[in-house]
């Protein structure tokens, strides 16, 4: 079970958290201005890397906050976590 450092609560076991997909996929400011292809890209296309991955987690059984996390998908090692809306 991973230990995940919540930026607000500190290190907590994985079962207090819920995974929430890839990070840094901002919702377009004006979706209506996007082409179908660009919108589909926003909806569905993800990087799925082997290695460093910026992803979102929510401390759902804790403070309830969403935050970002850089995790290595090969080793499962968590490099760092940081608040939502901030750069990696």
């Amino acid at each position: 079970m991973l230990i995940i450092p919540c930026p607000y609560c500190g290190a907590r076991p994985e079962n207090e958290f819920r995974y929430a997909g890839e990070a840094h996929i901002a919702r377009p400011a004006d979706p209506e201005a996007l082409s179908d292809a660009a919108w589909a890209d926003f909806l569905y296309m993800r990087t799925n890397p082997k290695g460093r991955h910026a992803e979102r987690w929510r401390h759902v059984h804790g403070c309830g906050r969403f935050f970002n996390c850089v995790r290595d998908t090969v080793t499962d090692r968590i490099e760092r976590t940081y608040p939502a809306g901030t750069a990696p």
């Binding site: 929430a20 979102r56 939502a84």
Partner: peptide, 13 residues
Amino acid sequence: LNHMEDYLQTEFP
């Protein structure tokens, strides 16, 4: 609630 929190915290903070 999770859906609402997600948008409130990350898209419409």
